[in-house]
Amino acid sequence: MQAKHKPTSFDPNRADFEPYGLTCTQWQPSPMQRPDHHNEVELNFLKSGSVTYIHGGKKTVVQVGKLSAFWAAIPHQIIDFSHETEFFVATIPLQHFLQWRLPEEFVQPLMRGQFLCEDSIDKASSDTYLFQHWELDLLDDLPRNEKPVILEMQARLTRFALNCPAISESQSVRNHLASVSDSGLNKVEKMACFIAKNYTQKLTVRQVGEHVNLHPNYAMNLFQKTFGTTLINYLTQHRVSHAQRLLSTTDMPITEIALQSGFLSISRFNDAFCRACGCSPREYRSSLILTEQ
């Protein structure tokens, strides 16, 4: 089955956080001049070749034949690829993803910035078929074509979630999002996106709550009920991920990295970074240098 249009590639001039919407396309990987951010869950499927990202400050390799997923509001940037690469990319609006109410043990790591990858290539053949069909179905940009794609994406991610190594058989029946209304999920989506767009600035819980017209305490409770982590921890994780990316891709002084990542002092930065990464920012940068030698 052949696609009816040429593969696409990253446009460095696209506006930051400009939405892609519901899409599926064969992607032509290229070195990205800057990280991309967008408020969708992104699926990657590699038929052949190799693609390497800097994702949230960490080097991540997309594995052939294994479905991968990540929340694309986390900074991600292709830094290496092979020329024979066949690479599918699908994007799912966050509201759709949250409404599917997948197991919390799958949703929470994804929303905290983990790059999730299946541990088997058993579904490679069927995934090739699915991604090709999704691409063709969405090519005409007709609303009627979206429904079967959405249903199939939901079913595929449900299988992914239930077979995720982080989820045991006893945990997989739990459904953390079931008690959150659709209107609540919409507000959580807006809060998550607001944080992702503004984490490098001075940001308070009150500001996040006001953005969605909620009292700060209610906003915090709703956010934690959905994602299983506090709003403050979520904000800090974004800042730490930003700092990891700067530590790994620039020679910028650590104090400047702390400020550009949204931390108000070097002591708060060091404390948050050590708790998240198990080492100091300086040790993290040194370990990257040793790895490359």
Rank of each mutant, 00 (worst) to 15 (best):
V188I: 15
A166M: 08
D251H: 05
N145R: 13
N186E: 14
N175Y: 02
L151M: 05
E210T: 11
K190R: 12
W134H: 12
L222M: 11
A219C: 13
H211R: 12
I167R: 04
N221K: 15
R159P: 05
E169Y: 07
E146A: 11
N217K: 15
I257R: 00
K187F: 00
S248C: 03
T128F: 02
P216T: 08
Y199M: 07
F227S: 04
R159E: 09
T250A: 02
D141Q: 15
I167N: 08
F160H: 15
E135T: 12
N221G: 07
F194Q: 05
H242W: 01
I121G: 08
M252I: 02
S241C: 09
Q201S: 11
A196T: 04
A196F: 05
N213V: 10
E189T: 15
S183Y: 03
Y218H: 13
H211S: 14
D141R: 10
G228V: 10
C193S: 10
N217P: 01
H238Q: 14
S248V: 01
E256V: 15
L231V: 15
L157T: 04
L235C: 08
P253D: 05
E210A: 12
P143G: 06
D251C: 06
A124L: 03
V149F: 07
E152C: 03
R156K: 09
S170I: 03
L185T: 13
G228Q: 06
L139T: 02
S126N: 12
E146V: 05
S168N: 12
Q237P: 00
A192W: 14
